[in-house]
């Protein structure tokens, strides 16, 4: 019998605390699986954000630095500059990366630090209970936009891949979705490419993963997939935005 799928050996045996249908689990699986495949666990330093992702930092095996909210890019800069031989991955949510940490994100990308960002865009502040995020879509209902975003001067959703790809230093900028098997396989390929670039010291890569947050979308996991296909991917088109590798 051939094993086609298994849990990454980079998790400790301790369950997890993500909600059913949450994409953080899938993102973690493909990220860790790729670290496994490339033999990077020993070299890896994972920089975690503030947000639901931080739940995972105690059940992964590679070493972890837990950054203040939004500041992972600056923390990662300090790490990578002092330890250039290490493999540094930032894992950040959309509130963390595109609101409070926007300045750090843009400037790290602009310096072209040799690290990899995995950006989990679930269009919402998950951990704090479903408030509007910078990525919340027009008309999307959240606990702070009860009639849908856009009626009270909230502006439009910020599209990070589009912004980052205008900068000079980033070498690979791409957006994937985690709603179905095909998309997940593509996302995993993108992550592998980005990791390989860091291993070869080829510059900064930014990987956006459109993710589901059934709990705060107030949808079942199944309906979340539908919402992703019908709404989220339309607002945030998938694809490679910059490739200079």
């Amino acid at each position: 019998m051939e094993i086609v799928y298994k849990k990454s050996s980079n998790f400790i045996e301790a369950g997890h605390s993500f909600c059913p249908g949450c994409s953080h689990g899938i993102a973690h699986n493909i990220m860790m699986d790729t670290i496994d495949e490339m033999g990077l666990a020993e070299k890896a330093i994972l920089v975690y954000p503030v947000g639901c992702a931080a739940n995972a930092m105690t059940y992964v095996k590679p070493n972890v630095v837990h950054a203040p909210h939004g500041r992972a890019p600056a923390v990662a800069t300090g790490i990578k500059r002092c330890a250039p031989d290490k493999f540094v991955v930032l894992y950040q949510g959309d509130g963390d990366l595109a609101a409070i940490g926007m300045a750090e994100t843009i400037h790290m990308a602009n310096r072209g630090e040799h690290v990899t960002t995995i950006y989990i865009n679930n269009t919402i502040y998950g951990m704090t209970g479903g408030q509007m995020a910078p990525t919340t879509m027009m008309g999307q209902i959240t606990t702070t936009t009860r009639e849908g975003r856009g009626l009270h001067g909230e502006g439009q959703p910020i599209k990070m891949c589009e912004m980052i790809s205008t900068l000079g230093e980033p070498k690979f900028v791409a957006r994937y979705a985690l709603d179905n098997a095909k998309h997940v396989i593509e996302a995993r390929k993108g992550i592998k490419k980005a990791f390989q670039m860091q291993v070869e010291d080829k510059g900064y890569a930014f990987i956006e993963l459109l993710s589901m947050c059934p709990s705060n979308w107030h949808l079942s996991p199944k309906d979340s997939v539908k919402y992703m296909e019908e709404e989220v991917i339309k607002t945030f088109p998938l694809g490679v935005y910059k490739e200079e590798v």
Binding site: V47, V65, P68, A76, I79
Partner: peptide
């Protein structure tokens, strides 16, 4: 925060 990273 860069200091935070460097110190770690």
């Amino acid at each position: 925060n860069m200091i935070f990273g460097a110190a770690s």
